[in-house]
Structure formats: C-alpha cells, structure tokens
Design a protein around this nucleic acid. Sequence first.
DNA 1: GCATGAACGACAGCGTGCTGTCAATATCGG
DNA 2: CCGATATTGACAGCACGCTGTCGTTCATGC
Lengths: 189, 189
Amino acid sequence: MKSRFHQNLTPAGEVLTELMLETFRLNGRLLAAGDRLVAPLGLTSARWQILGAIALAGNAQPVAHIARDMGLARQSVQRVVDELAREKLVAFADNPHHRRAKLVALTEHGAAAYRDAIAAHAGWSNALAEDLSAEEIGRALVVLTTLREKLERAHAAQARARKTSLVRAVRARREKISDEPASTPEGST
Amino acid sequence: MKSRFHQNLTPAGEVLTELMLETFRLNGRLLAAGDRLVAPLGLTSARWQILGAIALAGNAQPVAHIARDMGLARQSVQRVVDELAREKLVAFADNPHHRRAKLVALTEHGAAAYRDAIAAHAGWSNALAEDLSAEEIGRALVVLTTLREKLERAHAAQARARKTSLVRAVRARREKISDEPASTPEGST
DNA sequence: GCATGAACGACAGCGTGCTGTCAATATCGG
DNA sequence: CCGATATTGACAGCACGCTGTCGTTCATGC
C-alpha cells in the first residue's frame, strides 16, 4: 500500500489526511464566498455567523454562551460582538444572573441585516447543493461531526490529565514542605 | 419542512448549511490539534503544511507554485516561507526560468523536521480515523472536494465576467472617444 | 460568613489567512 | 523589436482566530 504521505498510515488514516487538507481548503473557499455574499449588506462571514448564532439561540445570551455554542474562544466572539454593538446591530442588556456578563440581543437593525443575509445564503446554498443529494451531504456531515467531537473529547481529556498531574505535583510539594519543617525540629533525621 | 435557518432552503441546501458550520468548527479543531502535535518540533500547523507541500512537490518550486498547489494566496505562503528560510528549514535556489522567483527547497534540517512531523501525524491520524472506515471518509472527501471545486469554478467565472465587462466598458469608452474627434473635423455632425 | 475555584469581560499580543499596490520579470502578439 | 499583459516578490494593512493575564463576579463547600 503506497502512501502519498507516510508508510505507517492506515488506509483510513491516509484518506483522513486528505480529508483534513480538503477541509482547510473548503474552509477558506467558504469564508471567501460567504464574505462576498454578505459584503453588500456590510457584513463579513464572521459577523453574520455571530448574528446567526444570536438569532438561533432564541433569547439573549452572554457572549461566553454564544462562543460556546459556536465552538469558538470567548474573546474572539467578544471582539466581533463589540464591533456589532458599535454599529448598532446588537445591543447589550442587563443580566439578572451576572452583573458583569451582559446579555446580547439583535437590534431591529441587526435582525433585518440577518434576515437579508440568510435569504441571500439560502439561494446560494441551494444552488451549491444542486449536484449533491441531501443524503450524501448528510453522510459527510456525520463524518465531520464524528471527527470534531472526537477531537474535542481528546482535548478535554488532555486538559483534565494536565490539571490532575498539576494538582498532584502541588499536593506532593505541599506535603513535602509540611513534612520537612516537622522532621527537622524533632531531629529525627 | 421546518428549516432551522430559512424556509426557502431545500433539504440539500439545509443540510449543506449545517455542513458549512461543521466545516468551520472542524477546521478550528484540526488546526488546534495540529499545532499541539507539532509544537514539540518547533513547528505550527501552517508551517508544517508548507514543509509538506514542498516535500510532496518532489522538486524545488517558486513560492507562487507552492501557494497555487495549496490553494492559498501567494503572499501567505511567501511570509511563512521567509520565516522558514530564516530558521534554515528551507533554502532558496536560483530559478533558470525567472530571475526574480527563486526556487524553494527543504534543507536537511527542514526535511528532518518534516519527517518527524509526518511520523507524529501518522499515528495521530490513524487513531482519529479508528471509528470510521476508509470508505466513508472517502465519500465525505468526495463531497468536500465537489463543493470546493464548484466554489472555485464559480469564483473564476465571476472574475472573468467582471474582467470582460470592464474590458467592454474600456473599449466602449475608447471607441466613443475615437469617434468624436473624427466626426468633428469632418463636420458630418 | 469566608475561602476557593470557576467563569467572565477587558486588555494584550501573536499567527495566519486575505486583499491591494508597486516594481521587476517573463510571455505573447503585432 | 516593442507594447501589452500576466506573473512574481516585496511591502502594507486588515480581519479573525488563538492564548495569556488580570480584576470582577458568581457558585460552592466548610
């Protein structure tokens, strides 16, 4: 089995490597096309995705929730939300549960912009999907989701392991420190 | 048919929209995991992808060719290649076909770094692909490739149409200008 | 009530993609 | 050969993702 990349790759690992490269390429193309699609509305892909996440959430949420729903870092979403707020596409409201973390909601202006964007997207997406059936796209979606979830689980497990070993190191260090003073005054060494 | 996004979406357009969002998420997760994987080698995802593209090309190429192969803008690749050159992972060689566009090749140091990276990737990719067959990953790859190619064709067609209409406007303007001086001296108007 | 840990926004910096511009170079057609 | 066009590297700026840090706020357990 001749691998394009490395002899240790399994057949599945080999085609997965190709899928990764294709994901990077498709990601760039989708962003570029999305940017062009919503540019006449004064939006970018990132901005209208955030408008979409707010709209789909159904009710106002703090930035950190929006970010979690989107699978992005909080600060990334915060930055764009602040810009959207400056342009009056979203507005902040008090959060009864947290004095600091305001709730973010679409303004009328923002809701209209999102409606325009999603309407343009619908026609474009329908045309793009023309050569493929919903079933095969759905199967591809399952593969991508499976991979992403597996990556997220592995990362979370690593973070827990790293934290646990850090806690163990700190505890070992604390016990060692508390042992040494006690041992020294008694002169048992 | 109740759409999560917009009532005009076809079933295929609907699931494609979900696939797009999943692509963005998977892209971020793959980059993050890739960065972690090659960090001990002093590399990042972007850097080792470029090392890989150079290695897979088989012979030294100018930056613009590498970029075209990767589906990226030339300047993006140039920037990283210049960094890799500073760190002695790649080197420039004269190009007999173009005095300005040097050829880029891996150094011994760069080839060793790439070997280490791809070996680490192989184990990791095999494990990630464990829950999926090569066949289903391959089918997903076909879907992604189909979409990407369609996006690229649509963009190229738009660029040609934009250029053609610009050329027509310039020609119409030139003919109008050249007509007016000729008409005026002959006094036919 | 108090201490601790987690979550959150603000601030900061960085990597990486993009587009645009300009000068150098190559290619092609008249 | 010359002019027009395309390609290329260098330069520049920007959007957008990330991580880290710090102070504020909340939740939990003792």
